[in-house]
Amino acid sequence: MEKETTNYQLILSKLESKASLKQEIYRNTIDVFAVAKKALSKIASRLHQDYHAKDPSVEVAYRDAHQFEAELKFSGDMLLLSMHSNVFNFEEGHRVFSSSYVKADPSLSYCGVIYIHNFLADSIKYNRLADEGTLIARILVNKQKRFIVEGEGQLGFLFESFSDSEISEEILTHIFELAILDCMDTDLQLPPYAAVKDITLHQKQTILAASGYPTGKRLGYQFKAEAQQNNNL
């Protein structure tokens, strides 16, 4: 009986130290994501206003898809912003655990996650389910709304340690602008001709007819060996 009481008290303790903590971080991430949507929407409005008169064919549009997702379309690119509904900790040995900030309170390493993906706009438009996107960055938010960013280019080192202050709309705008620049600096490349010159009728009638050429910025598009290999996985 004493052992059962001890276990029960341990459960109560862990609910306080982990469950309540994760709920707090989840609420923080929800708040930050709302600000992120606002920042992305403002970027879309400014780009549309400043560039539409120069070239109306270049579409810039923001869409609030649902509670955990928003999109920014700019010409042929789509920046897809999404929030994970769960809370995570870093893998053992990660550099955050060596910081004095986390050493003073280990619970500060738990984070909610906001992802920034880049897809081709046509992938979304034509529902090409085989198309590949790229994770440009992920924003990690802790119980104090302080953050780390892991990502491509400048986003891989500018915010690699927990910030000294809460994340803000100004900071999020800076992050999104860097993400947009990364998308625009990465062009869609043709694969070698020899790699895509052969195609079976089955592939033509199934893969291509269903969703068009499976395409991604860093993938190009795939035929034959690549598609066969994927089908065998």
Score class of each variant (00 low, 15 high):
Lys197Gln: 14
Glu150Thr: 09
Thr29Gln: 01
Ser17Glu: 14
Ile30Ala: 09
Glu71Thr: 05
His117Leu: 10
Leu140Phe: 08
Gln203Arg: 09
Tyr126Leu: 12
Arg95Phe: 10
Leu135Gln: 14
Asn231Thr: 07
Gly76Ala: 04
Val60Asn: 07
Ala121Tyr: 08
Gln229Gly: 10
Asp64Trp: 08
Glu24Gln: 14
His66Val: 04
Leu208Tyr: 13
Ser165Thr: 11
Met1Phe: 10
Leu158Met: 14
Ser163Thr: 00
Leu190Glu: 14
Leu172Thr: 02
Lys145Val: 02
Gln67His: 11
Gln203Val: 01
Val32Cys: 01
Val102Asp: 01
Ala36Arg: 03
Leu72Lys: 00
Asn230Met: 13
Ile116Asn: 00
Arg27Glu: 14
Gly216Thr: 09
Gln144Cys: 07
Gln205Val: 01
Leu10Cys: 04
Leu72Asp: 01
Gln222Met: 13
Gln229Val: 10
Met78Thr: 05
Tyr110Glu: 02
Leu172Ala: 03
Asn86Tyr: 08
Gly153Tyr: 02
Asp182Trp: 14
Ala225Gly: 08
Ser82Pro: 06
Val196Gln: 07
Asp185Lys: 15
Glu71Ile: 04
Pro191His: 07
Cys111Leu: 01
Ser100Thr: 09
Ile207Arg: 08
Gly216Leu: 09
Ala70Arg: 00
Lys22Asp: 10
Thr134Arg: 13
Glu177Cys: 08
Asp77Leu: 13
Val149His: 04
Lys224Asn: 15
Ala53His: 14
Met184Gln: 15
Cys183Ile: 13
Gly151Thr: 03
Gly133Leu: 03
Lys224Ala: 14
Val60Phe: 09
Gln9Lys: 14
Glu91Ser: 15
Lys224Gly: 14
Thr200Arg: 05
Ala19Val: 13
Thr215Tyr: 04
Val149Phe: 02
Asn86Thr: 12
Lys3Ile: 14
Ser57Cys: 01
Val96Cys: 00
Ser165Val: 03
Glu92Leu: 05
Val113Lys: 08
Ile114Cys: 00
Ser163Gln: 00
Lys37Met: 02
Ser13Ala: 11
